[in-house]
């Protein structure tokens, strides 16, 4: 079943970011040039996840916030209770997870 999303009335605090393609490359370059100590996780074909709050800005970046073990875009919320989601996501890999629209799930461990 496809998960539906709605806008979040109270955006989450930024705790990470997800990017793909040119945006991911630009983000990595900025992090390297500035010597930032951020946790970067590269998922081939799926994009780059960077964890931390003091992130460089790059066009086309999706900022992530965290609720429990699940990172989602700061401005969106999945229309299912977190506990249910966590149960479903556990089948895809160990927590924490990044959950993105279009059903994309990245296990960060």
């Amino acid at each position: 079943m496809k998960l539906s999303w709605s806008s979040r009335a109270h955006p989450l605090a930024i705790e990470g970011a997800w990017a793909q393609g040119a945006a991911a490359q630009q983000l990595q370059r900025k992090i390297r040039e500035r010597g930032l100590n951020l946790q970067c996780l590269d998922f081939p074909e799926q994009g780059l996840v960077v964890l931390g709050d003091d992130l460089p800005w790059v066009e086309q970046l999706t900022y992530l916030g965290r609720q429990g073990q699940i990172y989602t875009p700061t401005v969106l919320q999945p229309d299912l209770p977190l506990e249910w989601l966590a149960e479903g996501l556990a089948r895809k890999g160990p927590p924490p997870w990044v959950l993105l629209p279009e059903g994309r799930v990245l296990s960060l461990r």
Partner: peptide, 15 residues
Amino acid sequence: EGLLRDIDGHFAPDQ
């Protein structure tokens, strides 16, 4: 960049 991050972290592009 900090302000752009603040904008993008609070508003979806279509909003």
